[in-house]
Simulated assay, not measured.
Amino acid sequence: MGRWEPNARGRLERAALDLYLERGFEQTTVAEIAGRAGLTERTFFRYFADKREVLFWGSAALQEHLVDAVAGAPDCLAPIDVIAGAVEVAGERMQERREGARRRQAVIVANAELRERELIKLANLSAALAGALRERGVDDPAASLAAEAGIAVFKIAFQRWIDDDDRDLTSLIRESFGDLKAVTAGT
């Protein structure tokens, strides 16, 4: 190993994504990821429990930001508007990571196990949002419906964002929530 360089987590993440895209997720080993990053396997396991976690390690932080945004929303807002605001906050945080998001999504789409893990992550986000709405006094089924709708909107806006170079994620989220409201209003 060479001299110490900063940002081991970022280097491991870049190396893993490069290898996953070059060779495939299943064919890539932790040793290869660490080697490409100029680090040891032991260092890899300081940051990630396994090679899947390279793709999902930010889920807890995303969930925390979403829940905090719901908790901090004005009391006068309808549940769907609280969720829309929270999802927009998440979109703002992700805006600078478009290329990484594209690469990550390409790896996930190519692997059934990773697609399943992504769906579990989204279900957990929805459950956390519904729980945050319940903390605000929103009863079910309204809390669950608003949370599920918010995650559906996020998924659609996110896919549009990684497919489109010209639009920012926050505006796509707003537009998609507008589309949802139009669909549910019957217009």
Rank of each mutant, 00 (worst) to 15 (best):
A8Y: 05
E13D: 00
E26W: 05
T28S: 10
T29G: 04
I33C: 02
R36Q: 12
F44M: 00
K51H: 09
K51Q: 04
R52N: 13
E53C: 02
L55P: 04
F56I: 07
A60W: 01
L62F: 08
V67E: 11
D68P: 00
D68T: 12
A69L: 06
V70M: 07
P74L: 04
C76V: 14
L77S: 09
A78T: 00
A78M: 10
I80V: 15
D81A: 13
A84G: 13
M94H: 10
M94C: 00
R103M: 06
R103I: 01
R104K: 15
V109G: 00
V109A: 14
V109S: 13
A112P: 14
E118V: 00
A123G: 13
S126Y: 08
R134Q: 15
G137A: 07
D139P: 03
P141N: 11
A147R: 02
V153H: 04
F158S: 04
Q159F: 09
W161G: 06
D163T: 12
D165P: 11
D165Q: 09
D166W: 11
S171D: 15
E175R: 13
E175P: 00
G178Q: 11
K181F: 06
A182R: 15
T184C: 13
A185D: 13
G186R: 02
T187R: 14
